[in-house]
């Protein structure tokens, strides 16, 4: 697949050693690329290169095959959705007006803007009654949904999201995350997301990028980066002692099933369930193997020893 965003030989120099060094990264079209790393690692800086809020001291950023340095920054930015942690809603504009900012900049007709705003509010489960409210009267979760709606308003092919689900409780956070995953699935947008939440990163990423002190330390799929061999810093960042369990959550029962008769009385599990669910079931029932079912009929067995692909080696 073609790279939607390509960082080639990028360095950013903020002086006193801060910035980015030797960044090479391809974000394929339709990817959901998650940037993780300690505070100050340069995640936001990397993201802000894409909409030219940061200018590299060396290297090029290409978007859809075109060097962004050759593009008018204003026009470039209007084609990119941008959501930030502090949300950045205009306090003197209503919810509907905030969502409509980019469409208005692009000169859409009034009717089209209204339709789009309504559709986005429905999509992000925002009560239509909120449309006329000012941001100070929103909860943190509502504000973040509005921020997301605003970023999506002009239907950009690329979305930049810098810790978009910062200030909300874990339950709302999970709901927002599911919505983002659904939007990604349905629209196939290329998304660059920064998060400090390892669980969120592993769940959402199709491409996971680990950064440290201005460099990319590792990049790959969540499965690749959670493998035993990965760098200790990466393992620590992605979950430490809990990492084996997070990894099981990424794996499916289907991939570890072996044909044959399971033990008698073994509990049943669906082939599409995660291996973490399988482990949970084993612990609950004190079982060492499970019956794997597909559409209700048994297709094989899953043994404890087969979890996390160990049975195959």
């Amino acid at each position: 697949m073609a790279a939607m965003i390509r960082f080639a030989g990028i360095s950013v120099n903020f002086g006193d050693g801060a910035g980015l060094r030797d960044i090479d990264l391809d974000v394929p079209e339709g990817a959901l690329c998650v940037l993780v790393g300690t505070s100050g690692a340069g995640k936001s800086t990397l993201m802000r290169l894409v909409n030219r809020l940061v200018v590299p001291s060396a290297g090029t950023v290409t978007l859809a095959g075109k060097d962004i340095a050759t593009r008018d920054p204003v026009e470039l930015r209007r084609g990119i959705g941008y959501a930030i942690q502090s949300v950045g809603l205009f306090p003197h504009r209503t919810v509907a007006e905030n969502i409509a900012i980019i469409p208005a900049l692009l000169g859409w007709e009034k009717r089209r803007i209204t339709e789009r705003t309504d559709a986005l509010m429905t999509m992000l489960q925002l009560d239509p009654a909120l449309a006329g409210r000012y941001p100070h009267a929103l909860s943190g979760g509502q504000a973040q949904r509005v921020g997301l709606a605003r970023a999506l308003a002009a239907d950009p092919a690329v979305l930049l999201m810098d810790e978009p689900f910062g200030a909300v409780d874990p339950i709302v956070r999970r709901a927002l995350r599911r919505e983002l995953a659904a939007i990604h699935r349905e629209t196939g947008k290329t998304i660059l997301l920064v998060t400090h939440d390892a669980e969120e990163a592993l769940e959402l990423a199709t491409l996971l990028v680990v950064m440290r002190e201005g460099r990319i330390l590792a990049q790959g799929s969540p499965l690749e980066l959670t493998a035993m061999a990965a760098d200790p810093f990466v393992r620590e960042l992605l979950g430490g002692a809990g990492l084996p369990l997070r990894r099981l959550d990424l794996l499916h029962v289907r991939d570890a099933v072996r044909p044959g008769e399971p033990e008698a009385m073994a509990p049943e599990i669906d082939a599409d369930a995660s291996q973490l669910d399988a482990l949970r079931l084993m612990l609950e029932h004190g079982a060492t193997s499970l019956v794997v079912t597909e559409a209700g009929s048994a297709v094989g067995a899953l043994r404890f020893a087969d979890l996390d692909g160990r049975g195959r080696t």
Partner: peptide, 13 residues
């Protein structure tokens, strides 16, 4: 500042 930056990031002149 972050508001101005958000506006800039959305392509406001």
């Amino acid at each position: 500042r972050d508001l101005v930056e958000a506006a800039e990031g959305m392509g406001m002149t």
